[in-house]
Design a protein around this nucleic acid. Structure first.
Length: 565
RNA sequence: AGCGGGGUGGGGAAGCCAGGUAUCCCGCGGGGCUCAUAGUCCCCCGUGGGGGAUGAGGGACCCCGAGGUCGGUGGUUCAAAUCCACCCCCCGCUACCA
């Protein structure tokens, strides 16, 4: 660690709280970010892990209108619900904020005033569709009509879901407002734009020079920059949002995308304010050595690699640009995309009603769509939990602890040289390094595979050495090595299944928190003489009936929800 | 259409960037072992758990084995799953939905 601690900011995309995230949303962004943050802390880095709820925008406004309540009330209610869920998922946010946070609102307004003063904002008049009945301007998505190409009657203004063609709302035959069905009219309005093209050269240099970006993100973004950037509108005519601070822009709000990304900064600022060191955020954001990683869906790579860096540049204040972005492919549910409207998939609140959080964290990591779309099925879930979590890891930990606890009651002192034990020790070091290396590259699935392999090595070691047949001295030596491996499992599993790792840690006789230890300590055996605690099985097998019950239970929850809303 | 990702034994994944041994998990066949969370029996609170007993052997664990022209065709090379070209499938993105 060469004297000075590394500084890291770990971010995940801000969930839009119009709905509860599903497992597909969680796996690539928030859960991945959490594992990264936990790992980096265990590497001794100084980490700030932040995210928050994205609360503004048309969908929430519309939903609130439908229910006859204020958008703020709906957004706050959803925010609280989602925030509690992340706590249940054991997400170790240093700060989980929201775009309605006063710190965020003030920051956004100050920020855009600065960008305006620097000359990167201009205004222009545009024509947009407007619903005279709901009295709001309609985003493309909120206009439906008949597709001019295929005749599909429920095509949206941006794209026809039936034939897949990209559309303009004005191309639709018989256009209607998606909210009330009235015929929209074309209306003139003034909007403020961010001069993105002004940053073409700087962006190209930044993207080309940033070798940490994944190849796909670099290529895609470079391509887009070279094809030519267009100005981005910053304002909207929505009521629900952050008031635009530009002269003459009274009544306009900042477009959600363009303000929510600034949450990455404001949430760190807010975090240090809460801790009573309100200036410390600058040490992170204005230090070019701070590393930042953004866990996002692959669909918004351009936003994080082009628009967000350009905004930071436009402030001319020296913010550290993204060090890397990390995205995954999609998690499919039974072969199809998760779909809110079709209720196809599993949502993060339902999941915890049917199985413990660590089962989910483990299975989602094991099935993480690292290089290609991955299919989630209940059969796979059951297989992963039974074979890997329970049989390989859980059973190993339990058999070692039981053997050692019954015979010695403490971590035994090794009394003789043992070739087997020495080999095990070097195997542990090797796999701990390999798992750490994969973690550092944010390849968590790969890291987990190494850890499962570690447990397999432990099981093989016990089968070879048969400590139950040995006298006390020889058994002590063998079990000492086996307990070392349990310690290594507790440490390396801590970022993935923190709760269960902590239990392993306590069975080993430790009374502090495993996550406060360093990754490297996995290579050191536990201290001889430390009293062990009586072990209890950590996991249970899942039967086919358990799965059937879980599916039924989820159905029940959905029926209850629908009935109440 | 353009761009990006992918097509590897029955299923699921790694390897490809830095060519030379095709690896892992499930499933399948055979074997070893009996320390531990299957099973069976009994008891307790209750409908999901808690405690106890049992086992020459079933689950777990470990070992061995069967199974693949690595999407197709052509090229480069002493050598290609890996590099190049073309083609065929699948998925995603294409910036005012968040």
């Amino acid at each position: 660690m060469e004297g000075k601690r590394e500084k890291w900011m770990v971010f995940s995309a801000w969930p839009y709280v119009n709905s509860v995230p599903h497992l597909g949303n969680l796996v690539g962004s928030i859960l991945s970010a959490d594992i990264a943050a936990r790992y980096l802390r265990m590497r001794g880095a100084e980490v700030v892990f932040a995210s928050g709820s994205d609360m503004h925008g048309t969908p929430i406004e519309v939903e609130a209108i439908k229910r006859g309540i204020e958008p703020k009330e709906l957004a706050e209610r959803n925010h609280e619900y989602v925030k509690k869920l992340f706590e249940k998922w054991n997400i170790s946010f240093d700060n989980y904020s929201k775009t309605e946070s006063p710190v965020h609102i003030k920051f956004v307004q100050d920020f855009y005033r600065k960008v305006y003063d620097n000359g990167y904002i201009f205004d222009d008049v545009v024509q947009m569709l407007y619903c005279p009945n709901d009295k709001i301007f309609l985003p493309d998505r909120f206009v439906v009509g008949t597709c001019p190409y295929c005749g599909y009657e429920k095509a949206h203004g941006d794209q026809c879901e039936n034939c897949g063609r990209l559309l303009e709302p004005t191309l639709l035959i018989n256009p209607r407002c998606a909210i009330c069905g009235a015929t929209p009219i074309v209306k003139t309005t003034r909007h403020w734009f961010f001069d993105l093209p002004a940053f073409t050269e700087k962006l190209e240099k930044y993207i080309e020079g940033n070798k940490n970006l994944p190849a796909n993100a670099r290529n895609m973004s470079l391509q887009m920059v070279r094809e030519g950037l267009k100005p981005r509108s910053v304002t909207r005519d929505n009521k629900w949002g952050i008031p635009a601070p530009f002269p003459g822009a009274e009544g306009k709000t900042i477009y959600v995308w363009m303000e929510a990304v600034l949450g990455y900064v404001s949430a760190v600022k807010e975090y240090f304010e809460k801790r009573g060191t309100p200036e410390k955020w600058r040490e992170f954001w204005f230090d070019e050595n701070t590393k930042t990683v953004y866990f996002i869906g692959k669909d918004n790579i351009p936003f994080h690699v082009i628009i967000f860096p350009a905004l930071l540049m436009a402030s001319e204040e020296g913010y550290v640009l993204p060090w890397t972005v990390a995205s995954t492919e999609y998690l499919l549910f039974k072969g199809l995309k998760f779909s809110k409207s079709k209720r196809h998939g599993i949502w993060i609140d339902e999941a915890l009603e049917v199985f413990p959080v660590d089962y989910w964290r483990f299975a989602l990591t094991a099935l993480r769509p690292e290089v290609r779309d991955t299919n989630f099925t209940w059969e796979e879930f059951r297989r992963v939990i039974n074979n890997e979590l329970n049989d390989a890891i859980g059973n190993y930990v339990h058999r070692v602890l039981t053997l050692a606890y019954r015979r010695f009651g403490q971590v035994p002192e090794p009394v003789e040289e043992s070739r087997e034990a020495a080999e095990l020790s070097s195997t542990i070091s090797k796999l701990v390094d390999e798992a750490g290396d994969a973690m550092a590259r944010f390849r968590f699935k790969e890291a987990l595979a190494k850890i499962v392999k570690l447990a397999g090595e432990g099981n093989a070691y016990l089968n070879r050495t048969k400590p139950w047949e040995l006298d006390d001295g020889a058994a002590a030596t063998v079990l000492y090595g086996a307990l070392h491996l349990v310690k290594a499992l507790a440490i390396t599993l801590s970022p993935i299944i923190p709760g269960s790792a902590q239990k392993m840690w306590e069975f080993l006789g430790y009374s502090d928190s495993v996550e406060r230890h360093l990754w490297e300590e996995a290579k050191e055996p536990p201290p001889p003489g430390q009293a062990l605690k009586e072990p209890k099985p950590l996991f249970r097998k899942i039967s086919e009936e358990d799965i059937d019950k879980a599916i039924e239970r989820i159905e029940e929850i959905r029926r209850a929800k629908e009935a109440s809303s």
